[in-house]
Simulated scan of single mutants.
Amino acid sequence: MRASSGGARERQDARERRRAREFEAFAGGAGGRLLRTALLLTGDREAAERLLTRALAHTYAAWDGLGGEDPYERTRQELVARYARSGRCHRRGDGDGPLARLTSRERLVVVLRLYEGVAEEQTAAALGVSVERVRALCARAVLTVAA
């Protein structure tokens, strides 16, 4: 009996090592772009790194249950949800750069639509608003940035 429990443990260890390698490969490949997205949202390097770390931890915890779901999409959704819940959604002036004059909700729309290329419908669903609201936020944000 002891030999079979040792074999089960070895198989479990092998699965955990494979899972860790897969996740490391994903994070190594997608981490830079996800960090850039977080940085565009927060306007602050430290806040972006914290946001991304939490989103990646959530993705890693769910790794075995993704079942064919795109881990990049899952992590980006978690990043957006965490940012939206952070209480920053009603402030202006986060960080420096051209997006600093936008509200956080406008930032979310601009980053998702223009940087990430997410469809209006998906952006609306992620933010819990109508497609028309996404269009209005995006138009206002673009005008603000261009001014």
Results as ranks from 00 to 15, higher is better:
residue 114 L to S: 06
residue 66 L to I: 02
residue 100 A to L: 04
residue 72 Y to R: 08
residue 63 W to F: 08
residue 96 D to Q: 10
residue 99 L to I: 06
residue 104 S to E: 14
residue 80 V to K: 02
residue 97 G to P: 04
residue 99 L to K: 03
residue 73 E to D: 13
residue 63 W to H: 07
residue 73 E to M: 05
residue 70 D to Y: 06
residue 85 R to Y: 01
residue 104 S to R: 15
residue 68 G to S: 09
residue 61 A to G: 14
residue 103 T to N: 02
residue 64 D to M: 03
residue 59 T to V: 07
residue 78 E to T: 14
residue 106 E to I: 06
residue 67 G to H: 12
residue 79 L to I: 06
residue 118 V to A: 10
residue 99 L to G: 04
residue 83 Y to Q: 01
residue 115 Y to R: 01
residue 102 L to I: 06
residue 96 D to K: 02
residue 62 A to C: 05
residue 66 L to N: 00
residue 66 L to E: 09
residue 93 G to N: 06
residue 109 V to D: 07
residue 100 A to K: 13
residue 65 G to M: 06
residue 87 G to K: 10
residue 86 S to K: 05
residue 119 A to G: 01
residue 81 A to L: 09
residue 99 L to E: 09
residue 73 E to V: 12
residue 117 G to E: 09
residue 103 T to C: 07
residue 92 R to K: 03
residue 80 V to G: 10
residue 109 V to M: 11
residue 109 V to E: 07
residue 62 A to P: 00
residue 68 G to C: 05
residue 62 A to Q: 15
residue 73 E to F: 03
residue 63 W to T: 04
residue 82 R to A: 12
residue 86 S to M: 01
residue 81 A to V: 06
residue 84 A to D: 13
residue 97 G to L: 12
residue 74 R to S: 06
residue 114 L to D: 15
residue 108 L to C: 12
residue 67 G to N: 13
residue 79 L to Y: 07
residue 73 E to Y: 03
residue 74 R to H: 10
residue 71 P to F: 02
residue 94 D to A: 08
residue 74 R to K: 14
residue 74 R to C: 00
residue 101 R to E: 13
residue 110 V to A: 10
residue 93 G to M: 08
residue 76 R to M: 09
residue 109 V to W: 12
residue 101 R to C: 11
residue 74 R to Q: 07
residue 89 C to S: 11
residue 79 L to K: 03
residue 85 R to I: 00
residue 60 Y to N: 00
residue 81 A to G: 08
residue 85 R to A: 15
residue 105 R to S: 08
residue 119 A to V: 03
residue 113 R to V: 14
residue 110 V to K: 01
residue 90 H to A: 13
residue 109 V to G: 09
residue 83 Y to F: 15
residue 115 Y to I: 02
residue 110 V to W: 09
residue 65 G to V: 10
residue 61 A to V: 09
residue 80 V to N: 00
residue 92 R to V: 15
residue 100 A to Q: 14
residue 110 V to F: 14
residue 73 E to K: 08
residue 91 R to F: 11
residue 76 R to V: 14
residue 64 D to H: 01
residue 99 L to P: 01
residue 108 L to P: 03
residue 76 R to I: 01
residue 82 R to G: 09
residue 90 H to W: 15
residue 97 G to Y: 13
residue 70 D to I: 07
residue 103 T to R: 13
residue 99 L to V: 07
residue 88 R to P: 00
residue 119 A to S: 13
residue 93 G to R: 13
residue 88 R to V: 06
residue 63 W to V: 11
residue 74 R to T: 07
residue 94 D to E: 15
residue 92 R to I: 15
residue 83 Y to S: 06
residue 119 A to T: 06
residue 97 G to F: 14
residue 71 P to K: 11
residue 99 L to C: 08
residue 118 V to F: 02
residue 112 L to Q: 11
residue 108 L to H: 02
residue 63 W to P: 07
residue 105 R to D: 13
residue 79 L to C: 04
residue 60 Y to P: 00
residue 70 D to R: 11
residue 102 L to F: 03
residue 62 A to N: 10
residue 111 V to C: 05
residue 79 L to F: 05
residue 84 A to R: 15
